[in-house]
Amino acid sequence: MMTGRISKVIIFSAAVLILTGCFSKAVPDWQSTGFSHLESFKKEFLSGDDERASRSFEKAIVEIKKSGRVDILAKAYLTRCAVAVAALEKGECGEYLQIRDLLQDRKEDTYYAFITGNRGKVDERLLPEGYRPFFHALTVGSVADINKALEAMESPLSRVIAAGLSIKQGIFDETTIIMAIDTASYQGWKKTLVRYLEALKALYERNGEKARAERVQERINAMSLKK
């Protein structure tokens, strides 16, 4: 029974590998490993597994440094910075600033300006396409447009980053936070979820809606950040 299954697995894997192996050009080792570590970092950081997240990030940096590509290194640093914005934390962008002079492309600088809230230095055309409608709405200051842009975003992480930015800049409403909460909840990003719940609670408190704020607090308590 087991042997049958094993042989089937082998045949299957061989078929998959034959088919895929013949079709594609190999991605370099550093890139595929670096990518995996960076993906793990995002997930771990947003979920609240900070220790693992920092280990994954270090591993990703080690891999990327193997290639000597400053542009990709910059992207990794900016990723950490952006993910912190998503979790409503203060972004650590110091490492990016250390290497920014080595970059030739202005794209990274625009992204940096975008996630640090320096709207004046953002060149909308150089922003990743998914953020452009959001940025436009942010510049205009229309909360309704911001919410519409958030809803249209495909990437859940981008949506939460954008929500984080609008909250940091004070251009948001209940819907903005709820959209971020739903996204984080769907993705299982516990830390991020709790941060937005806290933000929602703060909003209710500011608005004097005590009962609703308490209900949010109960929800936070029920989950508790600790294991």
Binding site: L17, T20, G21, F23, S24, K25, A26, V27, D29, Q31, S32, G34, F35, S36, L38, K42, I64, I72, K75, A76, L78, T79, A82, V83, A86, E108, Y111, P128, S155, L157, S158, I161
Partner: peptide, 15 residues
């Protein structure tokens, strides 16, 4: 990972 023909997805990019 190397064989998955979605090279674009394996590219490191800002989120």
């Amino acid at each position: 990972d190397k064989m998955i023909p979605m090279k674009k997805e394996r590219e490191i990019n800002v989120p």
